[in-house]
Design a protein around this nucleic acid. Sequence first.
DNA 1: GCAATCTAGTTTAATAATGCAACCATCGGA
DNA 2: TCCGATGGTTGCATTATTAAACTAGATTGC
Lengths: 158, 158
Amino acid sequence: MVKRTSFEHDDCPIARSLDAIGDWWSMLIIREALFGISRFGEFQKRLGLAKNILTMRLRALVDQGILKTAPASDGSAYQEYLLTPKGRGVFPILVALRQWSEEFDERPEEIATILIDKEKGKPVRKLELYSQDGRLLRAGDTALKPRPAGKQGRRVTA
Amino acid sequence: MVKRTSFEHDDCPIARSLDAIGDWWSMLIIREALFGISRFGEFQKRLGLAKNILTMRLRALVDQGILKTAPASDGSAYQEYLLTPKGRGVFPILVALRQWSEEFDERPEEIATILIDKEKGKPVRKLELYSQDGRLLRAGDTALKPRPAGKQGRRVTA
DNA sequence: GCAATCTAGTTTAATAATGCAACCATCGGA
DNA sequence: TCCGATGGTTGCATTATTAAACTAGATTGC
């Protein structure tokens, strides 16, 4: 059985996130949604994906509480797809992906857009990870600790 | 997963990142690598993926400059896979994925690990996005600007 | 020095996930 | 009522992913 292995029940939070939004289209759909896209047709036109795939992705995102459907809003009798707080919470992930590309892509000149802050119109800073007492942390400065309460499998996957 | 439409030449940096590392396994391979895993067999054992897929993923990651192969190191005559700076640059993306799961997962009690800073042993802060003058930015506070068309200027690596 | 085993793959066959195109249903307007 | 747009669904061909079997060189045991 081939069964695209699901990470839904993995105890690694990264795997769990990937299970939810770790495919090519879901992230891009959320990206569009963050820019205000809400209609089926708009998603389809801007992303250029097959409609059946879009149908499935939207349904999955709704099922997971990342999007919610609302009955119309602009007069038309159709529905629209709106981000929930969980969906808006994906924003930092998208920023991280964007910044990685900006920093390491071999042809950054092909990147068409820059993320700026609306108020000043200047590029945003790089996302950075800090300790609770304010030190800048890099990968090597961090470690994983088993989650305290509860006892469950020890498959400590990084 | 069919003709897996490639985003390689898309001008959106998010799409470009996803094209490079946006599949389940690549991210998880990099996650393991960040924790020091470097051998084929170790990756295979810890991730439980098919070996042929691992072969292809490792090769793709090497081709993209995310991993590099080094001839042995622990004595054995085999090779190992080491992260390049580009590979280590994925760290914030993984942190973002982890934190999204921690914040929004429906069964957070199933998450086995917590990311702490080594020095103090305390959980890290949440990744946050700041403007150049230090204001905390949310999705709605940002916008996209076309990249200043132009010369070969160095780019937004800030 | 020979067999057993470990490592790092490749090959194969089956199955599951896409992509594309065509089809269907509903709504609003003329 | 007919027409076009929106929001899907269905079929079919293509491709990806998988588990499992197989290979070949390196290492270990004896």
